[in-house]
Amino acid sequence: MQQDAVIIGGGFAGLSAAYILARARRHVTIIDSGTPRNRFAAHSHGVLALDGKSGLEILADARAQLTAYPTVTFVEGEAHAAEGTIDDFHIGVTGHGSIAARRLLLASGIEDRLPDIPGLAERWGKTVLHCPYCHGYEIGGGPIGVLATHPMSAHQATVVADWGDVTLFTNAMPEPDEATLALLERRNVSLQPGAVSMIETGTCDRLRVRLENGRTFDVKALFVAADLHLRGTIAQSLGCELQDTPAGKILTTDAIKATSIPGVYAAGDNARAFGNITLVSADGVMAGLGMHQSLMFTAHS
C-alpha cells in the first residue's frame, strides 16, 4: 500500500511531523534506526515541562502515543536508498524491501564527528559537551574548557563564559584576530596555545586536558563544536540542495521545510544550523503541516 508519507528518522523532528499527519488521518510510515543524536546525554534540559527527563525517555513516550493512531506504522531499520518523484517515491529499507510514498520527509539528523583526540569521544555527552544552553547550568561554574575546532570556536568560548571561568584551548589553530581577542579579553576568556594531545581523568572527577608540550589543565567540562555530517546519502542521491554552515553542510529548506526537490521535505538537525529538542520538534510540526497541505491540494488528495 502506498503511504501518504514516509518519514526517515524517528527522532524529535520525525515524530513531531508524524503527529500532524496522523491527526489528519494520513497513512504515514516512520523508519527509525533507534540511534538519535542525543542518545549520549543522560538528561535533556530547557524542554518545556520536561526539564531533566532523558531524551530517550521522551522519544519512547512519543512513540507509545503515536501507536494509538491506526494510520501510523513504525519500521525499525536503516533507509539506504530513495528514488522517484512527487507522488511516487520508493524508499529502500534494509531487511524490509521498498516502501512507496507520495511524500518523503528526511529527518535522520546528523552525525557529530569529533577531533581524533584520545579520551574525547568516550566522554561525549557527559563531560565533553556541545551546548551550554543544554548543559551549562549543571556544571555549576568553575573552570571550563573550550576546544577550538574551527573559526567559530572563539565565539563559542565567549558564550560559554556566562557559565564559568573559560579557557580556550586553541589546539594549534590560528590565533583569533584583534577584534576577537579584544572580545575574549572583555569576556575574561583565557587563551591557551598548543595542540591538545589527550583528555584524561583529573582530580575531583574533573577532566585533564593534556597538551603536546606536557602541560595539563583540569576543567569541570570541555565544550567542543563537532563537525556536522548528514547521516546517509539519500539527500544527495535525490539531488537536494545543500548549504554550508560553519560546522558543516545542511539541507536547504523553505518556510514549510520543503527541500529543492518537489515532494521531499527535511526537518531537524539536518536542516538547521543550530538545534535543540524544542527547535527541531517545531521544524517537524512545520514539515508535517507542509506535507499535509501539499497532499490536500494535489489531484490525488
Rank of each mutant, 00 (worst) to 15 (best):
D4P: 15
V6Q: 05
G10V: 00
F12V: 04
Y19R: 08
D32R: 02
D32K: 01
P36Q: 00
R39W: 01
A41L: 08
S44I: 07
S44P: 10
V47R: 00
L48P: 08
L48S: 10
L50F: 13
D51Y: 07
E57T: 13
A60L: 11
A62Y: 08
A64I: 12
Q65A: 15
Q65P: 05
L66F: 14
T67V: 15
T67Q: 13
P70K: 06
V72H: 05
H80I: 13
E83H: 14
G84F: 02
D87T: 04
G92R: 06
H96M: 02
A100I: 08
G109A: 10
D112C: 11
A121Y: 01
R123S: 05
T127E: 11
C134P: 05
Y137F: 15
Y137Q: 11
I139M: 12
G140P: 09
L147C: 12
T149W: 13
T149P: 14
M152Y: 13
A161E: 05
G164Q: 03
G164I: 00
D165R: 07
V166R: 04
V166K: 02
T167A: 03
T170A: 10
T170L: 14
A172F: 07
M173W: 09
P176D: 02
T180Y: 04
L184D: 02
E185N: 13
E185C: 10
R187M: 12
S190C: 13
Q192K: 15
G194S: 04
G194H: 03
V196C: 10
E200P: 14
G202P: 09
T203H: 12
C204R: 11
C204K: 11
D205P: 09
R206N: 10
L207M: 07
R210L: 11
E212F: 10
E212N: 08
A221M: 09
A225D: 05
D227I: 15
L228R: 14
R231G: 12
C240K: 01
C240A: 14
G248N: 03
I250P: 01
L251V: 03
T253E: 00
D254W: 00
K257S: 09
A258D: 01
I261V: 15
A273Y: 11
N276Y: 11
V280E: 05
D283H: 09
D283S: 12
L295T: 08
F297T: 12
T298H: 14
H300R: 12
S301P: 08
S301L: 08
